[in-house]
Design a protein around this nucleic acid. Structure first.
Length: 277
DNA sequence: GCGATTTGACCCGC
DNA sequence: GCGGGTCAAATCGC
């Protein structure tokens, strides 16, 4: 019953997307008859492409749902089954400072917890999260979060499947700061312009890691050397430098883009394309 | 009331 | 049979 309602909802969304695409295509045809601005044409074309992309994503998700709930399987048993597809995965270790638990694990995406399991041989349970946009935009991103047994201040985060809900990182900005009282700890604030049609707003995320972890990387060491722990910026935020990504394509297409907020490696990979503001 | 989280049950691969 | 991943009903919180 609920499943049927969900299917109808999905169908409506797909039809809506296709109708939008059709509407935009009509507008484009009119524009071609009476040429005006090529910018408008381009925006119409990208609108059409987006509509069809969304429809395809929704349909592919629908197919998966149908596969899982095919009549034979339903006849066989009314019980739960899981997909056996092999997934791409990326493991990331995140250390959080005291009093920051929970917030630092926030990586800029919206996750919904769908399960928790006690793992054999581990003291801490593993949490299972999937993208909130799974059903609205067909985003299949999944992550697993488990507190490290060895270091309770560290979380092991495993990302399975990448986000298809499309974060637009073209205007991503990083802000790096060093706390006065803790000169070996680095706070990174990221300003991210998400291509979020619902919210249309910039989202800020912060996380931190220890200086020694990055000491053996020359570029990072140079950066840290330039951050004198005694100076204070005009904004009142200690030692803040703003960095902006000079290559949106390299960010957006990076295999680690989805977890760039939490993966130290990905931040460092990107560091060479940053330019000082 | 609705969306998010919790939690026990179930499924599947090894 | 065991362990890990997922589902979905129950519960919680706003």
């Amino acid at each position: 019953m609920v499943m049927k309602e969900e299917m109808l909802m999905e169908e409506k969304l797909v039809i809506n997307e296709l109708e939008q695409g059709k509407e935009l295509a009509n507008q484009l045809m009119n524009n071609l008859k009476f040429p005006s601005s090529s910018e408008l044409d381009m925006s119409l074309i990208s609108g059409i492409l987006r509509s069809y992309e969304n429809a395809i994503v929704m349909l592919s998700l629908d197919q998966k749902t149908l596969k899982r709930s095919s009549p034979e399987r339903i006849d066989q048993s009314n019980k739960k089954r899981r997909t056996s597809e092999k997934k791409m995965s990326e493991k990331v270790k995140i250390c959080v400072g005291t009093g920051q638990e929970g917030t630092s694990l926030d990586d800029g995406y919206c996750w919904r917890k769908y399960g928790q399991k006690v793992i054999h041989g581990s003291k801490n349970p593993r949490g299972y999260y999937r993208c909130t946009h799974r059903f609205t935009r067909g985003c299949l991103a999944v992550k697993q979060v488990q507190k490290s047994d060895a270091d309770p201040s560290c979380y092991e985060v495993k990302y399975l499947e990448s986000h298809t809900c499309k974060a637009n990182l073209s205007t991503t900005k990083f802000s790096v700061s060093v706390p006065k009282d803790e000169p070996k700890r680095v706070h990174v604030k990221m300003m991210l312009n998400l291509d979020d049609l619902e919210n249309k707003k910039d989202i800020f995320r912060t996380f931190s890691f220890s200086y020694p972890e990055t000491e053996n990387i020359p570029e990072w060491k140079n950066l840290m050397d330039n951050l004198s722990p005694t100076t204070t910026s005009e904004s009142g935020i200690t030692n803040e430098l703003l960095y902006t990504s000079s290559s949106s394509v390299s960010v957006a297409n990076s295999p680690t883009a989805d977890s760039c907020f939490s993966s130290l490696e990905s931040i460092l990979d990107l560091s060479h394309v940053w330019s000082l503001m």
